[in-house]
């Protein structure tokens, strides 16, 4: 450690929150009507984060595998809901939620497990101080990719219907016919992680690294931590997008290699 970190109290944070008053002022002057929404969003953030802090504190003290697993489950389910909440075309029934949740759960848990088993090796393995923040970072960042990938898949399959059916009608397999739609969906899903990998360090300093440096960690160590996390996130995003898009294609076609747009509804 270079310096001991500076403890924050409630007044430091409250002072920063005063910056939000400027938002409110702008909203009033320009009649944006956003005052209420800014207030609600800020309040949500405060309550959610404070709750998380309390839960984590309690969980760290408890250090029980069952509670850690339970929290992981809750995080995954919320991520699945968020991933499929704003789709233009959604799958009938619970399929979209199932694919989003399943893909992210599989990818994030696999990648987090990999990091726990190789780089961190906490003792005991379920130590929530490692499991929860790692999974949270991986889950939150792969959520973006999975959400965008699935959204684009629905739109692409819907818009490319004549091309997909023409390919099928000429004797193509569903794999061949869906390939162009899969391509754009995968590209769309991987864009955020590609962007942040190429821009981080120049355009922005990642939040986690900033936090570590402020907390007094040697910058090079903070960089190594950040790199490790970025690679974990990239791995989980790639795997999650692939799983989500492939299961989407499976659902939008059938064993007779037909296009099943009846399983997709416009919101």
């Amino acid at each position: 450690m270079i310096d001991p970190f500076i403890r924050l109290d409630i007044f430091d944070v409250g002072l920063a929150a005063a910056l939000l008053l400027a938002h409110g002022l702008v909203s009033v002057i320009y009649r944006l009507g956003l005052g209420r929404r800014i207030f609600v969003a800020a309040l949500r953030m405060v309550v959610q984060l404070l709750l998380l802090g309390l839960v984590l504190k309690y969980l760290f003290a408890l250090n029980a595998p069952l509670w850690t697993v339970l929290l992981v489950l809750v995080m995954v389910l919320f991520a699945g809901r968020e991933a499929t909440a704003r789709q233009k075309y959604r799958f009938t029934g619970l399929w979209g939620f199932a694919f989003g949740t399943g893909a992210m759960a599989a990818a994030s848990i696999l990648v987090t497990g990999f990091a726990l088993a190789t780089q961190f090796r906490p003792d005991p393995w379920y130590d929530p101080r490692f499991v929860v923040p790692l999974l949270g970072m991986v889950l939150g960042n792969s959520l973006n990719g999975v959400s965008l990938g699935m959204m684009r898949l629905g739109e692409a399959v819907h818009d490319m219907r004549p091309a997909i059916e023409a390919r099928l009608a000429l004797g193509g397999t569903r794999r061949q016919a869906f390939a162009p739609a899969v391509k754009v969906a995968m590209q769309n899903g991987l864009t955020p992680i590609l962007n942040s990998m190429s821009a981080c360090g120049i355009v922005f300093i990642p939040g986690m690294m900033t936090g570590q440096i402020l907390a007094g960690i040697d910058p090079l160590q903070a960089v190594l931590y950040q790199l490790l996390l970025m690679f974990l996130i990239a791995g989980a995003t790639g795997l999650g997008v692939l799983l989500a898009v492939q299961s989407g294609v499976w659902r939008l076609s059938d064993a007779r290699h037909r296009l099943r747009l009846d399983r997709l509804v416009a919101r």
């Binding site: 023409a166 009608a169 397999t173 007779r256 290699h257």
Partner: peptide
């Protein structure tokens, strides 16, 4: 199905292109 459609070709009124 792909083999069937290779033998029995359907040409839509508005052809699709990929």
């Amino acid at each position: 199905a792909p083999k069937w459609r290779d033998r029995v070709r359907y040409l839509a009124a508005e052809p699709g292109w990929w």
